[in-house]
């Protein structure tokens, strides 16, 4: 009856309904943050493991210029993370639009921004 014990443990620990799709858990640079100097890399962490070849991330500045210097790449040892090389030309607001595909084949999407100061 180990499973019964596990269920009881789950109840005791107050497990809430889970995120069974890939949602953005955190970002580096963080969502809505102000960073000094242009970061070279954007790292996105999700609530589920990802199918990286089918994830897309668009990064653009306030003029709509592309700030991504390449496609999203897997982060070794972190199957729930994506990294995107950046080439930010000018300070200001940077917009990020992401489309994620989790390993259970579900699609999610979202967007956020952060600000770069000189």
């Amino acid at each position: 009856m180990k499973l019964v014990n596990l269920i009881a443990l789950a109840l005791l620990l107050g497990i809430s309904p889970a995120f069974a799709h890939a949602f953005l858990a955190k970002s580096d640079p963080p969502v809505g943050s102000v960073v000094h100097g242009a970061p070279k890399m954007l790292v996105l962490s999700f609530t589920e493991d990802l199918e990286v070849p089918f994830c897309r991330v668009a990064v653009s500045d306030s003029m709509g210029m592309n700030d991504a210097a390449g496609k999203p790449q897997a982060v070794p040892g972190h199957p729930n993370e994506l990294m995107v090389p950046l080439n930010i030309q000018m300070p200001g607001k940077v917009s990020v639009i992401w489309h994620a595909l989790s390993v259970d084949t579900h699609k999610t999407q979202g967007n956020f921004s952060f600000t770069v100061t000189p």
Partner: peptide
Amino acid sequence: LAPPAMAAMLGQSGG
């Protein structure tokens, strides 16, 4: 389908 726990979050604006 998306289970109810996260259905409301579909299309959200970041994390």
